[in-house]
Design a protein around this nucleic acid. Structure first.
Lengths: 165, 165
DNA sequence: GAATTTACGTCAGCCTTGTTGACATTCCAA
DNA sequence: TTGGAATGTCAACAAGGCTGACGTAAATTC
């Protein structure tokens, strides 16, 4: 009755199972962004600002072009967001010492404060989900997500992982 | 060395682990939407059209207000998308028989054709990820995602699950 | 040393997709 | 009959993507 290959059930690969996974991703991503979005809607920023702040926090001193790659947006789009964050004193931009064409990005204390607020909210939901599901589920969660990424993004993700380990 | 509670390791709840999960969600969601987006960019539609088509396919005869709730958008926003899909002959809207105020939505053959194209692409990636990660990982994946949803969305998700089981 | 390429900033315009507010219609229900 | 619910639609606006073009400074290459 159950399809098998090498003794392993393949029931989890039915279209029905895949569809459930697709819908789970859709609804879960909504939850994933809900809490930071709520905070940001109060102040003048949006999800794009959150992403920039997150990755500058994550990789202090990163360059503009590196951030463009990570976020997958054009420089014009990124610049609009970065411009407001710099003007508002949340991000500091420093001309590169070894290569003067590059701009290195850092969070100011004010920027760090907002980052903490946002990531606290997002981590709280993540923590609750992790706790509810348990460590084994979390390992599987990460495995599937990683397998779902485009290869280039998987590389970017793994470089970030190492850096923060 | 390892924190323990009830004999179970809590290492998976460190801020570092949570941050990795957050970044995994971000990069994976990009991959998740990449293939349908590529198809849609060719024709005249966007991600919003995909979502509408998906859930109309999923729940044939669903009403407009139900779709609004599922998608989490306003009726004006939904109507704009629905309008083009109806005008282009991908979705059919039928006045309710028992309650004449309601409009029930269905995919036309043309709509079903596009739905199949889009979901084939999305399922292909999902299938590859599932296969790479294995059945145990998939179970964990689904558990964590479900725990991450807002309660209302979890209900919506579970109603869909039952219907399709 | 001159020419080219790279990294970045910026202006302008366009598109999608979300929002709010207002108003009309139709129909169910008390 | 009257209020509320479900829907459609018009208008205006905002966020955040995009492309294209142009400018500047700095590095690299010839």
């Amino acid at each position: 009755m159950v399809e098998r290959a090498g003794g392993e059930s393949l029931l989890f690969l039915t279209d029905e199972q895949l569809r459930k996974g697709i819908e789970a991703m859709f609804f879960a991503y909504r939850g994933f962004t809900a809490d930071p979005d709520r905070i940001l809607s109060g102040i003048d920023y949006g999800r794009a600002h959150h992403r920039a702040i997150h990755f500058v926090h994550r990789s202090p001193g990163t360059t503009v072009s590196n951030l463009m790659t990570i976020l997958g947006v054009t420089k014009q789009s990124l610049n609009r967001v970065l411009r407001t964050l710099i003007d508002d004193g949340l991000i500091r931009s420093e001309k590169g010492l070894v290569d003067g064409r590059e701009r290195h990005l850092f969070l100011t204390p004010k920027g760090q404060e907002l980052e903490r607020q946002l990531s606290d909210a997002q981590r709280a939901r993540m923590r609750a989900a992790y706790r509810a599901a348990g460590p084994a589920a979390v390992a599987g969660f990460r495995q599937v997500l990683e397998a779902m990424m485009d290869p280039e993004m998987r590389n970017a993700y793994n470089r970030l992982k190492e850096g923060g380990a």
